[in-house]
Amino acid sequence: MATAHANMLSNGRGMMSDAATGKTSADAAVPASRSAADSLAAAARGERVATETHLALAAEEAAVEIDDFCLWYGASQALYDVSMVIPRGKVTALIGPSGCGKSTLLRSVNRLNDLVEGVRISGDMKLSGASIYDSSIDVIELRKRMGMVFQKPNPFPMSIYENVVYPLRIDGERDRRVLDEVCERSLRGAALWDEAKDRLTTSALGLSGGQQQRLCIARAIAADPEVLLMDEPCSALDPIATGRIEDLIEELKGEYTILIVTHNMQQASRTSDFTAFMYLGSLIEYGGTYEMFSRPHLKATEAYVSGRFG
């Protein structure tokens, strides 16, 4: 862990010279501009880093609000005072180098981190204004309001049909008509209906990887969630399957609030409306995707999105 920090630190220093030589017009236009080295080095030291949040976000209605959220795995802190607003009906991408806490943040939204032993948190999150971490909250009810898609497709060892209606089954739904309808709607929503409609009763494990991932998306939207969480949904897929998933995200946008973690800059710029850049557990910069990729406020962000580090 210590060496990782040191490496990141030296990366940060490398960019400091960068920032010193070239001052861009974007930097000059933004009053709160700081140099790349400042925020990254501070993050590496474990200090609190103020997030550079673009003004564009102020106009958006919040689906999820995150307030000063910190998280520890045992003794080591993984998230440092993250504050952000996830806009309703939009796609928000979380980017950043490996180990920066993107997935941890995502899994904190539906409290999946509760399952990990020794996790502590501070701060709060709100889903449509109601606290997520309040002690009176029923975690199971909370998770039913969110859908989640994982890095590797994880269909359950049952039929395609049963996979899709699983969230309803665990709610005790028995009405065949309701289940049939949800199954078709979800599979259509996940663009899998045409391929799967003739084999609904066969095992989901017989599908190809891309189909399995779309099946997982169908499962995630079956219960009509408010928020769709996607943890690098395309990292285990080939480019064609990735393209289909990205098209699907485009179609789901508007209907669902989508929070997606990705390692792929192109994917973030193609699919998302807003992008958040994280580094070593801190949220560094957060704004509209176009802004973030073309005129980021911080040198560090520019360096990362242009592939100069990370």
């Binding site: 199971i140 009810e141 994982f150 994880n154 665990i170 499962r219």
Partner: peptide, 27 residues
């Protein structure tokens, strides 16, 4: 039984017992 399957079930809003009965035990 892969942890990803349990997580998938929990993320769907299943309780621990539902996850064990429907996902873990059959597998």
């Amino acid at each position: 039984v892969p942890g990803s399957m349990r997580e998938g079930s929990y993320a769907c809003g299943a309780s621990k017992w539902q996850t064990i009965r429907r996902i873990v035990l059959p597998r």
